[in-house]
C-alpha cells in the first residue's frame, strides 16, 4: 500500500470530511483531496491522479451510489478502489452498493480501527 497515494474524500458534511482526513493522516496518508458531493467529485476523478475514493452516500446533487456507478461506468476509473462511509444501513442498500462494485462499506458512526481495517483489506486484495 502506497502511503503517498492520492485519496479523494467526498462528504457533504465538512466535519465528517475533516474527521476522515485526520484519521487518514494518522494512518500515514497525507495526500488527500476533498469534494462535497458526487457532482464536484466526478470532475476531480475524471481529471485523473486519484488512487482511492472514500465517499458518503446521502449527499445533495449527486449521491455516493450515483458517483460509484459513474466511476464503474468510466473505463478510466473502472478499477478505482472505492470505500463507502455512510449512515445508510438498510440491508438492501448495502447489497445495492456491493452490486454497484464498492470495495468496502463502513457505517457511521465508525471507529478509527474500523476505517484502518477496511482500507488495509481493500489494498491487501489489490496488492495481493
Amino acid at each position: 500500500m502506497d502511503k503517498n497515494m492520492r485519496i479523494l474524500v467526498v462528504d457533504d458534511f465538512s466535519t465528517m470530511r475533516r474527521i476522515v482526513k485526520n484519521l487518514l493522516r494518522d494512518l500515514g496518508f497525507t495526500n488527500t483531496v476533498e469534494a462535497d458531493d458526487g457532482k464536484t467529485a466526478l470532475p476531480i476523478l475524471e481529471a485523473g491522479g486519484i488512487d482511492f475514493l472514500v465517499t458518503d452516500w446521502n449527499m445533495p446533487g449527486m449521491t455516493g451510489i450515483e458517483l460509484l456507478q459513474a466511476v464503474r461506468a468510466n473505463p478510466k476509473l473502472v478499477s478505482l478502489p472505492v470505500l463507502m462511509v455512510t449512515a445508510e444501513a438498510k440491508r438492501e442498500q448495502i447489497i445495492m452498493a456491493a452490486q454497484a462494485g464498492v470495495n468496502g462499506y463502513v457505517i457511521k458512526p465508525f471507529t478509527a480501527a474500523t476505517l484502518k481495517e477496511k482500507i488495509e483489506k481493500i489494498f491487501e486484495r489489490i496488492d495481493g
Binding site: 466535519t15 458512526p109 478509527a112
Partner: peptide, 16 residues
Amino acid sequence: LNDILLAQGFQDITGQ
C-alpha cells in the same frame, strides 16, 4: 486526540 476527533462525527449523524 483521535478519540476527540472521532467524537465529532455526531455532527453529521445528528444533522441528518
